[in-house]
Amino acid sequence: MSISNFHTTPPALPAFNVSTALLASEVPAGAAGAAPEWIKITPRGTADTRDGRVYLFDPEKLVARFKADAIDLATDIDHALALRATKGEKADAIGWVKELKAQPDGTYARVEWLPAGKATLAARTHRYVSPTFHHTEAGEATWIHSVSLVAAPALNMPALASALPGGPGEAPATVRQALGLDAIADDAACLAAIGELRAAFVPIGLFNDAVATLNAANGTIAELRSTDRKRKVGELIEGALRAFKITPAQRAQYEALCQTEAGFTHVATLFANTTPMFQPSGLDQRRPDTGNALETPEMLAARAARYREAQAAAGLALTHAEAVRALTSNPSLGR
């Protein structure tokens, strides 16, 4: 298929090494005015731009990449997918490239036109084809992004070209700023920074699994700590009760104070420095250990009498009750 009036122009997409509206060639009319099935989208070999840059097209490589990707290429109007879709604006496809073919004079695409595409071609409002393609630093096209219908050859599209400043290898200022790079950073520096970000990226599924596992582990640890604290608090309070350092009525108060680690340490120190408030009462059916057999009331009364006599001889008169209290406090007296 012969296509004439091939032209070039130099704009570049805000993505790295992607050019749009570089090429524009007129769409050939189909039979009886129908939309053509095959259209030429790139030349073969080099194409010079108006500002002196050179791009290289290898149709065989472009076809091989298209087949490897196994994805239909979108056809749009005025590079809408490359310019507006990246900003979140509406950009619809008007056709789909189903096949690429390498020919002696360039790369051809077989397009399945949607009604909007057929209507645009029939109205003759956009008569030219212009591809958007990714290229290397040296300007060699590596794959086709999309194919557009435009209203004029590329050399007559200054508005589109001027809206996309920067040549190959020059990263947009907004990208450099977003990555925290200086004003002279090129594509290579930006790609290196993006690579570092991607290396640190954790898939959201893996992140959620890790968080769930961590939460479960923290719950188990908290439960173990709670159980251990209850045991330690119980042992501390029981020890204080047995040592007559607190009363049973005070138990709840000290348990509340022990709910934190600082509170537990404070209560333990307090108990360690507290002297017992009571002497053994005998209410538990036991008497103080005298080193002998348990003392009967008769034995206590006899010992009290002897103690009173000894104190009287020393000039100190005691009542029977006073003698009993003294003997209770000191079991060795009166023996």
Rank of each mutant, 00 (worst) to 15 (best):
D48L: 15
W113C: 04
P115T: 02
A68Y: 03
K87S: 13
V111G: 03
A85C: 06
I71M: 13
D72F: 14
F57L: 01
W113P: 02
P59R: 00
A68L: 12
F57S: 01
D92K: 13
A74V: 14
A80C: 07
R53G: 02
S130C: 01
F133D: 02
Y55R: 10
Y108T: 01
L100R: 05
Y55K: 06
Y55F: 14
R110P: 00
H135Y: 02
R84W: 11
G117Y: 04
V129S: 04
T132G: 09
K101T: 05
E89R: 14
E137Q: 14
T136W: 09
G52K: 11
V63Y: 00
G95N: 07
L56Q: 13
L100H: 02
T132V: 12
T86Y: 14
K98G: 02
G117P: 06
V54E: 12
T132M: 05
A91R: 09
A85I: 03
F66Q: 04
A138F: 04
D48R: 15
F133Q: 03
K87A: 08
T49S: 07
K90Q: 15
A64M: 06
Y128W: 12
I94V: 13
D105C: 11
I94Q: 04
D92H: 09
A74I: 12
D48N: 12
L73Y: 05
T125A: 10
D78L: 03
A80I: 04
V97S: 05
E89V: 09
G106M: 00
Y128Q: 04
P59S: 00
R84D: 15
I77L: 15
Y108M: 00
G117F: 06
G117S: 08
K98R: 15
L62R: 06
L81Y: 05
A74M: 12
K118M: 09
D58K: 14
T136R: 15
T125M: 09
G95Q: 02
R65M: 08
P115G: 07
G117L: 09
L81D: 07
A123K: 13
F133I: 03
F66V: 05
G106S: 03
P104D: 12
